[in-house]
Design a protein around this nucleic acid. Structure first.
Length: 503
RNA sequence: GACCUCGUAGCUCAGCUGGUAGAGCAUCUGACUUUUAAUCAGAGGGUCGCGGGUUCGAAUCCCGCCGGGGUCACCA
């Protein structure tokens, strides 16, 4: 700010390269008006949406005497700077400069504004004759200079690779991305609020485990230097959450946080994903059915004002109650095969084979049923459905029915063919739990799978006495997909896992 | 990991069976001025993902690699 004279534009010095040109703009700006990056604050009085709302009744061509200060990113410059459109986190807003009468110093500053810059403007609100709420600028400040150009203004960023790698650009350029991610975070907040109101305590349990338990999945392995031992990124928080209830920290706990599974990526799988897990003492899995329906219905109503949500041109109705159908019964309905009558594993495998489902030798009856369900039924469960009576063999942490020992007191909820919730009456008999873990350790899912370790700390915790309780897990990302009509899990994760873009 | 498919200007895309790279937006110059994907005239901008091969000649055909998407495998 040493000199107030308007620096002359030298066409000869006009850089060919856009980034170089913007750097030159920054130099001119710094010279004449000070370094924009030295600015530390701008006192906004209004969000763009707030102005549009406050003056919704203003007639075309009508002017107010209301002075506002607004700030945002420059999205469009029309008529040589006469109209500038900015975007803040609420909406777009048009800024007007009367080019013919603007003081020369500001005219020069206006020339230094580029698409993508962050500007602050103070001025008077009016509605143009064409009907656009506009701020007639009395003052303009370039608060930050964009040294790289924004994506194309109309088509935005289409390249999905670029969209996920440069999410900040995607957010600026793609309204849908802003809507989707905002809806996802609003959904998470709604779930937290719902659970707080019902007396659940939100807790935190370790992400680094000495043993990856609570589910069966390949963990990410890391190493602790000082302790010189391997640590595993958690695949589920389940066992620690139960230990908090055992200790009586709260009879109702939940955690919404990341889990990590070192497995394939797909439109429905990201290596790190978010789950809700909750535990409530003194209730069984039927209470989990009710709370699952209540949470998800609450989310739908919060986001859409209704239990009915469009996904992929299908209407999904989350209004409770949802049907509860047995896994074996569903298989019977869709294939005609009744696995209840096929208690012999080899007979079950043969029946599966007959309807085109290959299974590996050595599987349990429950694993065969699970495989058939996965191939023949899952995809057809579009409307919310609780699949109940899952085989005990695939439910190592769930209580079995006393009168039906091969069936667990468990359900999985399916929507649009995806499993989005999984819950059971939690097994609290330490002797039985040890036996289940031993069985699980022996069961080989694939030839290369390592034996599953037994979590002795958890068994010991059960031996200390765990109240009967219900537990529930909900896949937050998939629920977010359903609520935002997103076909890929990457759409609802701000920064999905990507390979580095090199070479 | 396997298969299919895509990768061209900063962005969005075109480029047929091989003939030596184009448009719109953005940028620059000029005009115009109450526009809203502003408009009009002109200009600059490309190791066609990378590397190799076939060919007189490759963005185009072949092989390998890198990156993305999809399907499968994997996945409580």
């Amino acid at each position: 700010m040493t000199d107030n004279t308007v620096p002359a534009l030298s066409p000869a010095a006009a850089p060919q390269d856009e980034v170089a040109r913007r750097n030159a703009q920054l130099e001119k700006l710094t010279e004449a008006y000070g370094n924009p990056f030295d600015i530390t604050r701008f006192d906004k009085t209004h969000a763009a949406a707030a102005i549009k709302e406050e003056f919704a009744q203003l007639a075309n061509g009508e002017k107010t005497d209301t002075r506002v200060s607004v700030a945002g990113r420059v999205m469009a410059i029309r008529n040589g700077g006469m109209f500038i459109v900015i975007l803040d986190d609420s909406d777009r807003l048009q800024i007007f400069h009367d080019i013919k009468h603007v003081p020369p110093e500001r005219a020069e500053l206006l020339n230094l504004v580029d698409l993508g810059d962050i500007i602050g403007v103070t001025g008077i609100v009016r509605r143009t004759p064409r009907g656009e709420i506009t701020v007639d600028a009395e003052n303009l400040t370039i608060l930050s200079k964009a040294l790289e150009p924004p994506p194309e203004k109309f088509h935005g960023l289409k390249d999905v690779d670029a969209r996920f790698r440069h999410r900040e650009q995607d957010l600026v350029a793609t309204p849908r991305t802003r809507e989707t991610l905002r809806a996802r975070y609003k959904m998470v907040a709604a779930i937290r609020q719902f659970l707080y109101e019902r007396g659940f305590l939100e807790v935190e349990t370790p992400m680094l485990h000495t043993l990856a338990g609570g589910a069966i999945a390949k963990p990410f392995v890391t190493h602790h230097n000082a302790l010189d031992m391997p640590l595993y990124m958690r695949i589920a928080p389940e066992l620690h959450l139960k230990r908090l209830v055992i200790g009586g920290l709260s009879e109702k706990v939940f955690e919404i946080n990341r889990c990590f599974r070192n497995e394939g990526l797909s439109p429905r799988h990201n290596p790190e994903f978010t789950s809700l897990e909750l535990y409530e003492a003194y209730v069984d899995f039927t209470a989990m059915i009710e709370i699952t329906e209540a949470i998800i219905y609450h989310v739908a109503v919060t986001l859409h004002g209704s239990g009915k949500v469009m996904f992929d041109e299908k209407e999904i109705d989350f209004t409770p109650p949802w049907p509860r159908l047995g896994m074996v019964d569903l298989i019977k309905t869709h294939t005609g095969v009744d696995f209840d009558g096929l208690t012999d594993v080899e007979a079950a495998r043969a029946a599966a084979q007959k309807i085109g489902v290959q299974t590996m030798p050595g599987l349990s009856w429950g694993q065969v049923v699970e495989a058939v369900f996965g191939e023949k039924v899952e995809d057809r469960l579009i409307q919310p459905t609780h699949v109940v009576d899952l085989p005990k063999e695939i439910s190592p942490l769930a209580k079995a029915w006393p009168d039906r020992p091969h069936v667990a007191q468990r359900f999985e909820t399916y929507v649009n063919g995806w499993e989005i919730a999984n819950a059971f009456s939690e097994l609290n008999d330490p002797r039985e739990q040890r036996a289940r873990f031993m069985e699980q350790a022996e069961q080989k899912r694939g030839p290369d799978d390592p034996p599953h370790p037994i979590d002795e700390d958890f068994i010991k915790a059960l031996a200390f006495g765990m109240p009967p309780m219900g537990g529930l897990g909900v896949g937050i990302d998939r629920l977010g997909m359903l609520m935002t009509d997103s076909k890929s899990i990457r759409e609802v994760i701000a920064f999905p896992t990507m390979r580095p873009d090199e070479g």
